[in-house]
Write a protein that binds this DNA or RNA. Structure first.
Lengths: 209, 209
DNA sequence: GAACATACTAAGCGGTTGCTTAGCCCTAAG
DNA sequence: CTTAGGGCTAAGCAACCGCTTAGTATGTTC
């Protein structure tokens, strides 16, 4: 049973994202770090902030993670994998349905899990070159997933796009940017944002009259 | 005469944005700061980085600016004003033309001046509450400018949108996110991005067949 | 040429950073 | 009861942070 209180609801969503991380203390540190990184940014967050949010001493961080950057990498990697999974799990009878579900789910994910999404989308440059490369490969697969759905719709004649890669870029960009402007207390729920965006994207790709 | 070399071309664009700032040294510091803030982020940039990029000693910063945050505020304020001006200067015979020009120019600005645009879009939370409020007012005017154009098109029947504020949000979001993914060496020029996006947005808002 | 103003630098201050060290507490096997 | 080991903390280290102070070089005014 989840509560409806703002702060606790936020915490529940973070718990949901990181539920597979063990042991318990390592998970609490990841949750604290993703909260802090999303709120203040990676560089503005101190290891003392993270430890304090997790209710521990500053030194406790280094029992479970080698460095502050390793904490960022875990969040970024798992976050990318989750957002990719959201896309690969999408179903539908035809490209129109599949794309509508993909956009709806992907945009909704960036709203609902905007904390994780912000770290995923805006802290790439703080990763070490090796970790950055690993994450870029996941991003390539996310882009390919969306491009393939649009391409399938072009082949059936359901979509009409002048520039496949350009359209893919725009669709992804639209969904990703939700993480920037979304606010939990706002007038649109994550579900409503997903519906709105699925509709707008289908309008954008439909053939002319 | 501008050079075609990457690094110098970038510097020319920054010069163009800040050409009204005087004295000379204050402008050089602003250019250095916007370069560094865009590349590494505000919090990851030190005042020594900025001074060094401007070819001066760390103390020189404080002759022209009260603090590092004041440097950020100047960049953010002027940047917001410039991007608002891009929208207000747009012309056209009908809402369709005006919106196409607005989207084309606004998206193009976020590509061409992606350095400034990144500071404008991603460092809001590093401003003091007073400076933040001042900049939020400019953002409100930017949103209103786009919303009014779309509304005008809905009234003439040129556009068909199920949700005016939702459509405005999506159009703005699309253009703003250009600053995140644009890379100077990429295969699309700022002009091409502007054209692509104007086309996609008009497709999104056109009435059904 | 004396007096002043402006633009800058060298040096450094107090505080904070990521991270380490040394040791304590608790559990559990021998 | 002893001993070993993992999880944690108190204390602190070296480096770095934003910013200040004291002083120097240069040009201008009378």
């Amino acid at each position: 049973m989840t509560t409806t209180s703002g702060g606790l609801r936020e915490f529940d969503l973070l718990e949901q994202t990181w539920r597979h991380v063990t042991p318990d203390t390592a998970r609490r540190l990841l949750i604290a770090a993703s909260q802090a990184f999303a709120d203040r940014g990676y560089h503005a967050t101190t290891t003392r902030d993270i430890a304090s949010l997790a209710g521990m001493s500053p030194a406790a961080v280094y029992i479970h993670y080698r460095s502050k950057e390793e904490l960022l990498f875990q969040i970024s990697k798992i976050g990318h994998e989750l957002s990719l999974a959201v896309l690969t799990e999408v179903q539908g009878d035809d490209p129109t349905q599949v794309l509508a579900n993909a956009v709806s789910s992907f945009a909704r994910w960036h709203a609902e899990f905007h904390n994780t999404a912000r770290v995923v989308q805006y802290e790439l440059s703080a990763l070490t070159p090796e970790h950055h490369a690993e994450v870029v490969e996941l991003r390539r697969r996310i882009e390919a997933e969306v491009r393939n759905v649009i391409e399938a719709g072009v082949e059936t004649g359901e979509f009409d796009v002048p520039d496949l890669r350009g359209a893919t870029l725009a669709v992804l960009s639209l969904c990703i940017d939700v993480a920037r402007w979304y606010q939990p207390g706002g007038k649109r729920s994550p579900e409503q944002i997903g519906d709105l965006y699925a509709d707008l994207v289908l309008r954008m790709l439909r053939p002319a009259a």
